[in-house]
Amino acid sequence: MTTAQPQELVDTAIDGILRSVPIGALDLETGGYLPEVVLGYETWGTLNADASNAVLIEHALTGSTHVARGASEEAGWWDSLVGPGATIDTNHYFVVAVNMLGGCYGSTGPSSPAPDGKPWGSRFPFVTIRDSVHAEARLADLLGIRRWHAVLGGSMGGARALEWAATYPERTARCAVISCGPASTAEQIAFTQSQLAAIRLDPAFAGGDYYGGPAPEAGLGIARRIAHITYRSEAELEFRFGRNAQDGEQPFGGRTHAARGRYAVESYLDHQAGKLARRFDANSYIVLAEALMSHDVARGRGSVAEALAGTETEFFLAAVDSDRLYFPEQSRQLARALPDPPEVHIIQTPIGHDGFLTDIHQLDAELVRSFFPLSAPVK
């Protein structure tokens, strides 16, 4: 365990700079065990004297802890939502973002050294969304945060936020679940299985023990292509690309398959695949994706309604109208299962699932009104 005291961890934090802290050993939901866990995290703003202004933001599947700009000025993935004068105003709120257990942005994962000094690789245990929440609660303890003012996230981040409300309702005053339902559906699991098969079938995967050799970038790239199609809508892809050829290429009329050029949409998917393969660990992709496949807030708790019965957590639910991965109806199902069913706010955008990132500003006024009253008024 770290010898740092909560006030020391908070006082030495620099906005938007990744830090890592050991939280000790962790018993896992399915019987696995990690003898030492480190969590990577970033913070913004200042924790007040009674630690009542702390906000936890949970990232999506391949997201990082870098939610917003900070000392480095590197753009964050929710810059429009978090920062001085933003919807979650860091002049008033202390924001924390944690890399999920099993990830590759500062937290213990498959690429981390096991007790024998070698990367965990294929030996890394199965982890669940619930396991990660237990680990995050340890970090909250180290930061001196007994109760979050709010926990929020989209997609896999929404699953983690919901699990916080079910597992630690006394520590979750408010919970915002965006573009996520109470459990992963059969179709979501099917899409994910196809992605994981692509990684595992890459010869470079080596059963998960590829560290020290070439990484399975081809398989990870295919996984990203499959996933990205579900993150965007048919209407957006048609509008942006249609049947257009990639500049300088001819996708029709080549004498052989190998000589064929690409359609513009193919080039787009190739670009998205390459970006992820360069920044993300394939084993972490598998670990986090399988954790999301296992997402079921009712597991071991009866029904969804029973799992969330009696909670005094205030909920904010939102969905994207064009989402074809997490349909808005799944958010409505979650709303109906809550003790005091809230309205499901709708982000209207043709983009699809990724609208929870690109068009989050549509929720600014409602979030400030209900969750972040100290923030600057939304114009």
Rank of each mutant, 00 (worst) to 15 (best):
T3V: 09
L18C: 01
S20T: 15
S20Q: 15
I23R: 00
L26C: 15
D27W: 10
G32C: 06
L34T: 08
P35F: 12
E36A: 13
E36H: 10
V37F: 05
V38H: 06
L39D: 07
Y41C: 04
D50L: 03
S52D: 06
V67W: 02
A68W: 02
R69A: 14
A71T: 09
A71N: 08
A71L: 14
P84L: 09
A86E: 11
D89A: 10
F94D: 01
V95W: 07
V95Y: 13
A97E: 12
N99W: 09
N99K: 03
G103L: 12
C104A: 14
P110D: 12
P110Q: 13
D116Y: 15
G117H: 05
R130N: 07
H134W: 03
E136W: 05
R138K: 08
R138H: 09
L142R: 03
L143M: 11
W148Q: 02
G154A: 11
M156S: 02
L162G: 03
E170H: 10
T172A: 10
R174G: 04
I178N: 01
G181C: 10
E187R: 00
Q193L: 12
L196P: 05
A197T: 07
I199G: 13
L201S: 10
A206L: 15
G208C: 11
A215I: 07
A215H: 01
A218R: 08
R225S: 07
I226N: 02
A227S: 14
H228W: 11
H228R: 09
A235H: 04
E236R: 06
F239R: 02
R240A: 09
G242Y: 08
N244E: 12
N244F: 05
N244T: 12
Q250E: 08
G253D: 11
A259D: 11
Y263L: 15
Y263S: 13
S267C: 13
L269W: 04
A273D: 13
A291M: 07
V297G: 04
R299G: 00
G300M: 15
E312C: 10
F315A: 05
L317F: 04
L317C: 04
A319P: 14
P328H: 10
Q333H: 07
I346V: 11
I346W: 04
Q348R: 09
I351A: 04
G352R: 05
L363W: 05
S370I: 04
